[in-house]
């Protein structure tokens, strides 16, 4: 009866155990390597960490960017399983020597999240240069922001490895700033209703590719996977066996002596 009950409850227990991972979301940290585009000479790394609450922590460290200038930056791509990647120079369809943001989009996808320093992170803020990070006088850029789960498009965390960070802003004529003299006016900005923005400010300088992943939160110390409860089992069996053999030996010795003593008396 008890056995039967055990058989009946076993699948229930198994179901409960299997149910736990379903609820949990893998909390992980994705490492991104930022590779130069348009011969920008820039480089960088980024880390995208999905927290256990579903928030997204973004950390970017770039160097070699146009100094003292804002750099529009976005997560490009989609969660629809499209195979986007970083473009190479063959994406430069108009042959002006630069892959523009529009020319890059078929390869790295549309703006998915705008990585602004404050306020909303919607696609519509893609060219909000007043809220984009500014490279310092040496061209170094640091960016750290956590975007709350509620502000992320659905599926962002699950598809982190499918998205690409793109940082924009190049200096085509090498004069240390964005101006119309470099590549003319930005067609991207113009199509968004913004006039007077140089193409140099919107052409991509860096595109990120996933290079690795790590645990999102590292547990403290070692893991307590054992209570020692069977560690002495071998010793107990060895000991018992040894005692039994000793006892057998004792019996043999005692009976030998007993049988020896009378025989001597008999003689």
């Amino acid at each position: 009866m008890t056995f039967r009950r055990a058989l009946l409850t076993a699948p229930v227990v198994a179901t409960l155990l299997l149910a736990t991972p379903t609820a949990a979301l893998a909390d992980e940290s994705v490492q991104v390597k930022l590779l130069e585009l348009n011969h920008s000479g820039a480089s960088g790394t980024a880390t995208l960490t999905a927290t256990d609450r579903g928030d997204l922590r973004i950390s970017i460290r770039s160097r070699g960017l146009v100094p003292n200038s804002p750099h529009a930056q976005h997560l490009h791509g989609s969660t629809a399983g499209m195979d986007f990647h970083c473009p190479d120079m063959s994406a430069d369809r108009d042959g002006n020597g630069y892959v523009s943001t529009e020319e890059g989009m078929p390869v790295y996808g549309d703006i998915f999240v705008s990585l602004t320093t404050a306020g909303d992170t919607a696609k519509a803020s893609g060219l909000a240069v007043d809220r984009m990070p500014v490279a310092d006088a040496s061209g170094n850029l640091r960016y750290d922001r956590t975007i709350a789960a509620a502000d992320l498009p659905p599926g962002t965390v699950e598809h982190l490895k499918d998205l690409h960070i793109v940082q924009h802003g190049v200096d085509a004529d090498g004069n240390g700033k964005y101006d119309m003299a470099g590549l003319g006016e930005s067609t991207l900005a113009k199509s968004a209703g913004l006039t007077g923005i140089p193409e140099e400010a919107t052409d991509p300088a860096l595109c990120g590719m996933v290079s690795g992943a790590a645990a999102g939160s590292v547990p403290v110390g070692g893991v307590a996977t054992g209570d020692g409860s069977t560690r002495d089992r071998a010793a107990v069996w060895y000991g018992t066996g040894g005692l039994a053999l000793l006892a057998a030996l004792g019996i043999v010795v005692v009976t030998r002596r007993r049988s020896y003593v009378p025989s001597r008396n008999q003689r």
Binding site: R233, V236, W237, T240, G241
Partner: peptide, 8 residues
Amino acid sequence: GVAAIAVG
């Protein structure tokens, strides 16, 4: 005894 040692 031998059995116990084998189990051990």
